[in-house]
Design a protein around this nucleic acid. Sequence first.
DNA 1: CATCTGGTTATTTTT
DNA 2: TAACCAGATG
Length: 862
Amino acid sequence: MTEPSKLPHHGVPEHQPVAGGIAARARATAGPQYLNGLNPEQREAVETLDGPVLVLAGAGTGKTRVLTTRIAHILSQGRARPQEILSVTFTNKAAREMKLRLGQMLGQAVEGMPWLGTFHSIGGRILRIHAELVQLKSNFTVLDVDDQVRLLKQLLQAENIDDKRWPARMLAGLIDSWKNRGLSPSQVPAGEAASFGNGKGGKIYATYQERLKILNAADFGDLLLENIRLFRENPDVLRQYQNRFKFILVDEYQDTNVAQYLWLRLLSQAPSRPGRSLADVIPGDLTSPRLRGEVGSQSDPGEGDSPQTVLVETPPHPDPLPASGESEQPALKNICCVGDDDQSIYGWRGAEVDNILRFDHDFPGAKVIRLERNYRSTGHILAAASHLIAHNEGRLGKTLRTEDVDGEKVTVTGSWDSEEEARAIGEELEELQRSGENLNNVAILVRASFQMREFEDRFVTLGLPYRVIGGPRFYERAEIRDALAYLRTINSPADDLAFERIVNVPKRGLGDATVQLLHDHARKRRIPLFEAARAVVETDELKPKARGSLRDLVMQFDRWRAQREVTSHTELAEIVLDESGYTEMWQKDRSADAAGRLDNLKELVRSMEEFENLQGFLEHISLVMDRDGEAGDEAVSLMTLHSAKGLEFDNVFLPGWEEGLFPSQRTLDEQGRAGLEEERRLAHVGLTRARRRAKIYFATNRRIHGTWSTTIPSRFLDELPAHNVEITESKGGSGWGGSGGYGASRFDNLESFGSSYSTPGWQRAQANRNRGGGGRSGGFEERQSSFTSSDSFSRTKRGPMVIEGELVAKSTGTTSEFSLDDRVFHQKFGYGHVVKIDGNKLTIAFEKAGEKKVVDSFVERA
DNA sequence: CATCTGGTTATTTTT
DNA sequence: TAACCAGATG
């Protein structure tokens, strides 16, 4: 996998200089080679091997480097063998990155690090080994959200719950959040359990778990939660892992949820003696005030289930030695958590910032090391980001500093509306391009994905290459899941969810009625759906058409299963996709993304090659598949702030800094101050992605859900230090009558922002504004009327704008190879025909997307 | 059983 | 506005 032949230099982060002059260099020569170039704090983080360590690693301070070097250090010091180190990350990408860097550092393949991976993949691996102890078989299926929802829908129907009022999706989210908090069905506080489906929510959660066992399946949450249950109910198993892992390393600790925290806690205790119970393993103190408050406060004190003890679950067998167990504080393992509280942006998904804030409480005697030397951004950018994040209260506090030059100031640009914003950024991008900047060094980071559309439209007209990062992950795409469902059905005939998914895809005339019949049969005879299908085909319960169709399908699957013995799994996949008519279905589909879907299917089959057999492939696919590729050609990256975490670019554009959008009104409404702080961290993450240039934008008018509304510049703008910020004029905005005046008044407004944030009146002004903002849950749209009138105004403005776009296009001077009425295909918009030609600039009427202006190199003849 | 139509609802997203 | 889904229609 990781080739030892990789260039040794490749993995060295960025442009980190050899730290701090003579002293450091002298010391560096003293230690082993791999310690060279670490600054003193990094070095301390690497060399402090004993006891709990928390490394607070600010943005761009060499976090991954510390983590990998620490592993190298442990190995080279002979403190542990590779298989004795547990090293967890959140994403596959991070795990891959670590493997890669480690391989380079050690000059060796890292196959010997079997326990380096994501929480979920490691949890899943442990679970497969001991599957029978949690009522599963080791080849259990990992369900995706789709499967979960489908299953829950069935359960809701069985309970006669109106799924209009109580959507399955909502329950899926609820169950997921319970699992994130480490709560099994019996542990969910009664009040919460009753909050869904007329009090039946908790019951359905329990039934859902039972159904999962019958289906031999686990959802993502189970990979951790069932793991925790495994450990709690089987102390000997837990002990085995406690013994094995001499060192534990955790990446992105600020993103851990309660379940992950509990899992880590269990593993990080020194192994207890055999015969002792859970009380040893989980000291009562584990239920920290935070957890107790969270779990306990939400249920009635009088409930029989005693929610307070939830986290110290009663073991299956009563503790034989409770008294002595309590007083002992079991020794803690050598656990090292790396994270940055200022980059915690996944609170809404269950991450507990508190985990990192309370680290030294949870792990007494922990050593806390701060990495504050930033090797990424220039001075002004770093100062702006630091100043901004300093407005947060719930943080451990770090001050990033750099030895780099001040560089360019952060710019703030106001525009009339979001369209002008996109235009302004488009022009800046062209300017960058002209000045020889590689577009791979440029990113546009938005708060919400709907903002991307405007940029895409603009870039398409400009012919500016861009790529969208994020969006649905590879294995989440419908075509991939369909293909997987076929393979799952072949592999395990009892996988009802998979069979149900593809029974009528492509259309075979087997609709709801047929499926319902199969369900009835299956339930009555307690057999899987597939077997029910086989049986039903023998009866005359179905209409001849459906019956024949179903018989064919059953026979096909029988044939494929037989073929499995004599064919490689990749070949089998091709055969299945072909014979089932699935490939054909997409070939016939004329929509824009059909071609892409076919590509994805090919990619899926190709990726199967890396696995031994079908079984192995299916076990890992849901955990390991992610889109990665896309390295490809030079292009501007377009993504959300969330998906930008961990990345860096020379030039970063940050549009949409407006109240309501950023910070998001919804977050503010739902999470209050905590929500605001998380939004602010998001802003901090955005700014710190930039190496050399950070450019912020806000628009005065934005269309939200189809209606125009006036917006106020984001409060985060007021929180930027005036000294490091420059107000610039929107380039796209200059030159129109009317808008200049508006722009100027905007700037008046802005003029005050720099100096006002620190003035005494600032707080009050801010409060006023907030009140105005808070009270306008409808106010966001309220101004609409005043802007319907301005709509005609802006429409007249659109005239010159379009011409401008054409001028840019004309300047390229080439004549198009297309002619009027040509039928063409565009990657994004699909099929259409040419209605106008202007140099290399085409106007195309798309079948689906309507009329668009597109540069000819972006379309091909259809 | 497939297709059409109207009502509804709008972040962020590993695994 | 637009995209998605559920129920009514052919």
